[in-house]
C-alpha cells in the first residue's frame, strides 16, 4: 500500500475509533460504580446529532471563534495521519516529535483564543487555565519522549517506535519508566482527565475544557468534542506505542497493517479502560494544586532525559 493510503486509513481509523474510546472511558466507571451507563457508541450518536444542528456564535466573537474547531480538528487529524500508530514506518518522512507536540499545542491555542473571543468570564477563565496547563504539559510531553530520542538519536517518532520494537534493549532503560510516568501524567492533563480536569463537570469554578467550549453548539461543538476525543486516542496511542511498541507494523504489508490496527485498538482501549478505572478511585485536584502535579511530572521527564543521556 502506498504511504498516502496508509496515512488516510490510519487517520480514518483513529477518527472513527476515538468516540468509541471515549465511550469506553465512560462505560468502565459506570460499570465499576454499579450503574448501567451509556452504550460505548453513545458518543458517536451525540456527535451525529450535534453535527446536524445549527451552530451559534456569540455576539462579540470574531473569526477566531469560528475557525478554532476546524483548526483543532485539522491538527489532530494530521497527527493521527502521520503518527506511528498502526505502522512505524516513515510516512511523509516520519512524524517528528517536536512537530507533533507543536501541532497539538496549536489546537489548544486555537481553542483558548476562541474561549477568549467569546468575551465571557467563563471563556477567559477556561482559556487561562487551559493555557497554563498546556504551558507545563507540552514541555513534559517533549521531555518524556526526548528520553527515548536520546537513545535512538532521532526525534522521529516512527524511528523511536521501530527501534523499540526491534531492539528494545537499546531503547529502554530503567529511566524509561520515569519517562512513561511523566508521559502518562501529561496525557491525563492534556486530555482533561481527573485529577487535572473533570470531563463530566459543569461546575463553573472547577471546569477547564468545558469552560472554554461553553459557547459552542451544533457542529462546532461536535468538531470540538470529536477533536478532543481524537487527541485522547492519539496520546494514549503514543503512550502505548512508545513504551510498548509490540505489534506495530514495521512495513506497509496490508497483512501487518491489519494486525497493527487491531493491536493498536486493543492497546488504546485497554489503556482507556485502565485510565477511567483509575479515575473512579481518584478525586479531582484543587485547581491550584494542579501545577504542582504538572511540575512534578516535568521534573520526572527531566530526570528521565538526564538519566537516559548519561547512561547513553
Amino acid at each position: 500500500m502506498t504511504p498516502w493510503l496508509v496515512a488516510v486509513a490510519q487517520a480514518a481509523l483513529l477518527a472513527l475509533a476515538a468516540p468509541l474510546v471515549v465511550g469506553v472511558t465512560r462505560a468502565v466507571p459506570a460499570r465499576l460504580a454499579g450503574r448501567a451507563g451509556g452504550r460505548i457508541a453513545q458518543p458517536w450518536r451525540d456527535l451525529c446529532k450535534q453535527l446536524r444542528k445549527q451552530p451559534t456564535s456569540p455576539a462579540d466573537a470574531s473569526m477566531f471563534f469560528v475557525a478554532a474547531p476546524a483548526v483543532m480538528m485539522a491538527t489532530s487529524l494530521i497527527v493521527a495521519a502521520t503518527g506511528p500508530f498502526i505502522a512505524a514506518t516513515s510516512l511523509f518522512g516520519g512524524a517528528d516529535l517536536i512537530v507533533v507536540v507543536g501541532l497539538l499545542l496549536l489546537g489548544t491555542v486555537a481553542l483558548a483564543l476562541a474561549g477568549l473571543d467569546t468575551g465571557t468570564a467563563f471563556g477567559g477563565m477556561g482559556a487561562s487555565r487551559a493555557m497554563v496547563i498546556a504551558a507545563l504539559v507540552e514541555p513534559t510531553l517533549l521531555l518524556a519522549v526526548f528520553a527515548l530520542s536520546f537513545r535512538v538519536g532521532s526525534t522521529d517518532l516512527s524511528r523511536i517506535v521501530a527501534a523499540g520494537a526491534t531492539e528494545p534493549a537499546r531503547v529502554f532503560t530503567p529511566a524509561s519508566l520515569l519517562a512513561a510516568a511523566a508521559l502518562a501524567i501529561a496525557t491525563l492533563a492534556e486530555t482533561g482527565r481527573i485529577p487535572v480536569d473533570n470531563p463530566a463537570t459543569h461546575l463553573e469554578l472547577t471546569m477547564v475544557h468545558e469552560a472554554m467550549v461553553l459557547e459552542y453548539s451544533g457542529r462546532d461543538l461536535a468538531l470540538v468534542e470529536w477533536a478532543a476525543a481524537l487527541r485522547l486516542s492519539i496520546l494514549l496511542g503514543l503512550l502505548a506505542n512508545l513504551f510498548a511498541p509490540w505489534g506495530v507494523a514495521t512495513s506497509l504489508d496490508p497483512m501487518w497493517l491489519a494486525v497493527g490496527a487491531a493491536v493498536f485498538i486493543g492497546k488504546v482501549c485497554g489503556l482507556a479502560a485502565l485510565l477511567s478505572a483509575g479515575e473512579v478511585w481518584t478525586a479531582k485536584l484543587r485547581l491550584f494544586r494542579v501545577p504542582e502535579l504538572l511540575a512534578g511530572s516535568f521534573f520526572l521527564g527531566l530526570l528521565a532525559v538526564l538519566a537516559s543521556a548519561i547512561l547513553a
Binding site: Q54, T56, S57, A70, A74, G218, R219, L223
Partner: peptide
C-alpha cells in the same frame, strides 16, 4: 483545516449570532 470546515459546513445549517 479548510477541508474540515467546508465539510462540516456542508453537513449543517448556516451559523447564527446569539447572545453569549
Amino acid at each position: 483545516t479548510g477541508t474540515v470546515a467546508v465539510t462540516a459546513r456542508s453537513l449543517g445549517r448556516a451559523r447564527r449570532r446569539a447572545i453569549a
